[in-house]
Design a protein around this nucleic acid. Structure first.
Length: 431
RNA sequence: GUGGGUAUAGCUCAGGCGGUUAGAGCGCCAGGUUGUGGCCCUGGAGGUCGAGGGUUCAAGUCCCUUUACUCACCCCA
């Protein structure tokens, strides 16, 4: 048998993607990933956010505690295993909980009013049925601002996420925001929603009937058109917010307006996890399929306490790397490619080859991107490689030239001149 | 967990009612130019037709089973 990458996982390959392949395949190229990560990290630096790296697996209990009880997704969708000492461990199914664990463990939040601003780039594992934009191992970039409750912080986090997507080149995105209230207001709304649904129950789709028992908020999300008609007058969580939550939400909206970031309030936007409070937001793209969320986040003031730390507020987002690349692939015409050599060295004889390898090392030490044939192939083959590599110049090492001299050819114009080694680095540019 | 679609060369795909050495484009390699790329021309390498079984004189093609991939539903951090 031939081995394949496990279902729902992908190799990220070197080189340039074949344009004949579908966009879903073309995103798995190293150059594109490096570009995205560099864009994110550069932006984080500008926002004064520093990166944190946590293990890819944690105690299973950490995720059980953080996800809470309203959902049963943990046991069904996490990659759980025990090590040789029978310790229960789980591959990271989300970005936030491990970061909070690290903050508590190392006392990063200790000492008062200092706001912690952290970023991560991490693989995420969920045992799910795969479909477009949803994989069993996918990757997220994300940030967490921990230690403050001010709506200005929510605004800053959203601004970073929005700027990041734009810096990547994504367009036609919609920012949706909502307030999911608190553990006090949520049950009150839930009861009101159930009261509203009860008389219509028989007319709801079977899925929604089931949801009304398991997770009533999700009924609001139903894709069934008849359900949506029935839901037209359903009570919204926004109508049940406490004064404080309402004021916070209004301040976030004012803050976004202040920054010129467009948004729509979506009263039906919900979070699956218990620990979210107040602000929830998502950025969706029409370029994706049914998995259309490219960035999602919110405020999680209860989380750190839930995992055994001191009560500490926080807000953050996670953004799927594959989904961002998928949108980019479909909306951009100029693909990101790996860096090309600046100069390709061509040699014909044994003495020329050894001179070429020596010169290549010398140039590389000087910071120049250089490549050359190492298999003694024909000149035609070497020139073809030079051309395909995207190199701007070819340099011919020639026995019949004066010592330490090459004939440098501009592969764009075809012009050629002889140059001493010492002038080569400058001649091929610094790019 | 449920439903649909697809598996033929490295990639994208053709292969009417079963019939002889299974094709194309792109890519790759080599020549045309005794050593200067691209464009063009010529040639070449590369396929257990996803796997297993069955029907038949004969299966890429028909039947059964199976696996993988894929899209959607459910679910969703």
């Amino acid at each position: 048998m031939q081995f394949q990458a496990p279902r729902g996982t992908h190799d990220v390959l070197p080189g340039v993607a074949d344009p004949q392949q579908p966009a879903d395949e073309r995103i798995f190229r190293t150059a594109k990933w490096l570009h995205l990560e560099a864009t994110f990290r550069d932006l984080c630096a500008r926002f004064g956010v520093e990166e944190i790296r946590t293990p890819i697996f944690e105690d299973t209990e950490l995720f059980h505690r953080s996800v809470g009880t309203e959902t049963d997704i943990v046991s069904k969708e996490t990659y759980d295993f025990t090590d040789r000492s029978d310790r229960p461990l789980t591959l990271r199914p989300e970005g936030t909980a491990p970061v909070m664990r690290a903050i508590v463990e190392h006392g990063l939040g200790a000492g008062g009013a200092q706001l912690l601003k952290l970023a991560y780039v991490a693989p995420i594992f969920r045992y799910e049925a795969v479909q477009r934009g949803r994989y069993r191992q996918h990757h997220q970039v994300g940030i967490e601002y921990v230690g403050g409750t001010s709506p200005a912080i929510d605004v800053e986090v959203i601004a970073l996420g929005w700027t990041y997507l734009h810096a990547l080149g994504l367009r036609d995105l919609t920012l949706q925001i909502n307030s999911v209230g608190t553990p006090i207001s949520r049950p009150r709304h839930r009861d009101a929603l159930l009261d509203y649904l009860r008389p219509h129950l028989a007319r709801l789709s079977p899925d929604s009937q089931r949801r009304s028992e398991t997770n009533p908020l999700r009924v609001l999300d139903s894709k069934d058109e008849r359900d949506q008609e029935i839901l037209a007058g359903a009570p919204l969580l926004l109508d049940y917010l406490e004064d404080e939550a309402r004021a916070h939400f209004e301040a976030v909206q004012a803050g976004l307006t202040n920054l010129g970031i467009p948004f729509v309030v979506n009263g039906r936007l919900v979070r699956g996890l218990d620990y979210y409070r107040y602000t929830a937001f998502e950025v969706v793209s029409a370029a994706l399929g049914s998995q259309n969320v490219v960035l999602g986040g919110g405020r999680y003031d209860g989380l750190i306490e839930q995992i055994g730390g001191p009560a500490t507020p926080g807000v953050g987002f996670g953004s799927g790397l594959e989904r961002a690349l998928l949108i980019l692939e479909q909306t951009t015409t100029t693909p990101v490619t790996p860096p090309a050599p600046q100069v390709w060295l061509v040699a014909r004889s044994e003495t020329e080859r050894s001179a070429a390898q020596r010169l290549a090392l010398q140039l590389r030490l000087a910071g120049v991107r250089v490549d050359l044939d190492l298999q003694g192939r024909s000149m035609k083959a070497q020139m073809r490689s030079a051309n395909h590599s995207g190199a701007s110049y070819a340099a011919f090492l020639r026995d019949d030239l004066p010592a330490a001299t090459v004939s440098l050819k501009d592969l764009g114009s075809g012009g050629q001149q002889e140059l001493p080694y010492g002038e080569l680095a400058a001649a091929v540019g610094t790019g």
